[in-house]
Design a protein around this nucleic acid. Structure first.
Length: 569
RNA sequence: GGCCCCGUGGCUCAACUGGAUAGAGCAAUCCCCUCCUAAGGGAUAGGUUGCAGGUUCAAAUCCUGCCGGGGCCGCCA
């Protein structure tokens, strides 16, 4: 439709009604919010008025005259300050259905991304324990975003960065050592700064099975490195299993540890140094809570302020060892060198303070070539009815992602996580989402799909010839409302991909399901609107075509969200 | 103190990135099942989009300043 508008504009330029070379990228054609305004509307005249130096309503009238010549357009009216409201012909809308059926699961796919290579890094939880609900949100967002970009023609790599190089994995190793001693019958105490979670019990046992009593009574320097490797491997097995429960498979697991001892951290820092962005210096103390023990220390700093950060950031501690930031720089350096056109990081909200320095690093390392987009996911507040499920490691009320999936299922977990945009906090009520009602959006969409399948079964049982050669029996406004919604799907995918907001797909499916249920119920009062017309194969075939198209779109939407449609409820 | 995110009917959230009279769901009131799944649908009511300015044909959206909530802020990751 947009193209039709552009063609009309070109015609006007040819007739010298409009000057050539107008900026048209702001021209939008969108479905009307108010049906009284027709099917679609365009703001073309308003956008062009200034540059064309003509009153918007004059342009609008000229444009409407051209558009009315198009057979697919029934009416084109100028409204308000210069909108053009379009009403398409019934045949034009019926044609949309045929297009959807022909494209099937490709309907909505596009080459908009032009094969651009995008790396989506998500989850990247420390390998020190099971995934919790917050990780789950990042996992679902990252995965749906990756699918959305694939659907829109990008070449996507899903990647997990394993933080297996820092002090936290030493803590893990010590905790596992305690469980190992426990497996040998010793009584152990978990001091402050160890992980007391019982998920390490089995790891301690497994370690015993492997090394026997070789480490019992030994000093840390004997066993630390070996147990660390053993334990992080065990944690990653567990994390992969948690992700698998959500249907998430990563293309790449990238180990932080693998950066060390290979000169790659040094190489990344050297690259920055060659650009004059590394220097020795002393940072100002933090402005707020002035620490008692603050001492000015000389550190190696990255001049991130040259790339938009607020202060320069340390890459080496005063004792010469790397900060956490340094391997992260090296890791992103590696991603850049692998040739990605765009990087996306999905982080938890607690990493908000980290965004600017990371962007600065990527900007510096790629000389501004590779954009880094950081999506922060806000907190998930887990509730059971009115009660809030507190997640406290100490109190032992640690609710894991696995717990939640066990309670409500993977599909529900995924969908609910996507019913909020990523930068809004999410209330997740494990009771409500198990309800089979409209209050539960997952159910509502599943139900629509299942109802459609039910009709298809009924039609098949009735032995009706469902070959579609004529869609003219589709005449009702509720039917057209559904078609119009279906026609919006490709545009929705594209704008959602552009904005990198997969939640829009979830909301769209909910709306779509609502229109379908409304149409269904109209059949209760008006039998002519029922889908299966036993005595009229032609009409049934046309209505079934509408249903199949609806099922296709739901299925394609679910595909992006990583949810399997159900045939029957 | 600085930086980031968020303030939309009683509640939980949308709003196609600047478009027309700001839309859904809960909760409230009233209707619709001899009929493809009522596990659903329809109708009514509810709003100065936190406040005040600004930008323009047009602002919930962009800019500035306040108010309120959350997150982060050197040698933790």
């Amino acid at each position: 439709m947009r193209q039709t508008i552009f063609d009309a504009l070109a015609a006007l330029i040819n007739q010298n009604v409009l000057p050539a070379g107008l900026e048209t990228h702001n021209v939008v054609v969108e479905p009307s919010r108010d049906p009284a305004h027709g099917d679609m509307a365009t703001n073309a005249a308003l956008v062009l008025s200034r540059r064309a130096n003509m009153p918007p309503r004059d342009i609008a009238h000229a444009l409407a005259d051209v558009l009315r010549d198009d057979v697919r357009i029934d009416t084109a009216d100028v409204a308000g300050p210069g909108f053009i409201n379009l009403r398409l012909s019934a045949d034009a809308w019926r044609g949309v259905l045929g297009g959807i059926l022909a494209l099937g699961n490709a309907y909505g796919r596009s080459d908009w991304g032009n094969g651009r290579r995008v790396n989506v890094e998500y989850v990247s939880a420390n390998p020190t324990g099971p995934l919790h609900v917050g990780h789950g949100r990042g996992a679902v967002l990252g995965d749906a975003l990756a699918s959305l970009l694939e659907f829109s023609g990008h070449d996507v790599t899903r990647e997990y960065y394993i933080n297996d190089g820092g002090a936290q994995v030493d803590v893990l190793a010590r905790s596992v050592y305690l469980r190992y001693l426990e497996a040998h019958g010793q009584k152990v105490a978990f001091a402050e700064g160890t992980y007391p979670g019982d998920y390490l019990v089995s790891v301690g046992k497994a370690l015993k099975d492997r090394v026997g009593d070789r480490f019992v009574g030994q000093n840390e320097n004997v066993w630390l490195s070996e147990i660390r490797d053993f334990a992080t491997d065990a944690m990653m097995v567990m994390i992969r299993a948690d992700l698998a429960l959500l249907g998430i498979t990563m293309d790449v697991f990238y180990s932080e540890k693998s950066l060390y001892g290979t000169g790659r951290v040094e190489a990344a820092i050297d690259d920055l140094r060659a650009k004059g962005l590394i220097y020795e210096g002393v940072l100002d103390p933090p402005k707020s809570k002035m620490p008692q023990d603050w001492e000015p220390r000389k550190q190696t700093l990255f001049k991130s302020t040259a790339h938009g950060d607020d202060v320069d950031r340390p890459v080496q501690k005063s004792d010469g060892s790397w900060t956490y930031f340094a391997p992260d720089i090296a890791y992103h350096y590696d991603k850049i060198s692998r040739g990605f056109d765009e990087l996306i990081d999905v982080f938890g909200a607690d990493h908000g303070g980290y965004v600017k320095r990371m962007k600065a690093a990527v900007s510096a390392l790629s000389d501004g070539r590779v954009p880094l987009d950081v999506k922060l996911t806000q907190l998930v507040k887990l509730k059971q009815g009115d009660a809030e499920l507190k997640m406290s490691k100490r109190a032992g009320t640690f609710v894991t992602l696995r717990d939640v999936i066990d309670m409500v299922g993977a599909d529900v977990t995924r969908f609910v996580m996507l019913t909020r945009k990523n930068d809004a906090p999410l209330d997740f009520d494990v009771e409500k989402v198990r309800e089979q009602s409209k209050d539960n959006p997952v159910f509502y969409v599943h139900y629509a799909y299942a109802r459609i399948q039910s009709v298809l079964r009924k039609a098949a049982e009735a032995g009706i010839d469902l070959r579609v050669d004529d869609l003219s029996p589709i005449t009702d406004s509720a039917e057209f409302a559904l078609i119009i919604k279906l026609s919006e799907w490709p545009r929705l995918v594209e704008t959602a991909a552009q904005a990198r907001e997969p939640h829009r797909v979830a909301f769209y499916l909910y709306d779509l399901a609502g229109l379908f249920h409304a149409l269904w119920n109209r059949g209760n009062t008006d039998p002519r609107l029922r889908f299966v017309q036993e005595a009229d194969a032609k009409t049934t075939a046309a209505k079934v075509a509408l249903l199949r198209a609806t099922a296709i779109v739901i299925s394609n939407g679910f595909d992006i969200l990583g949810i399997d449609p159900v045939e029957k409820m």
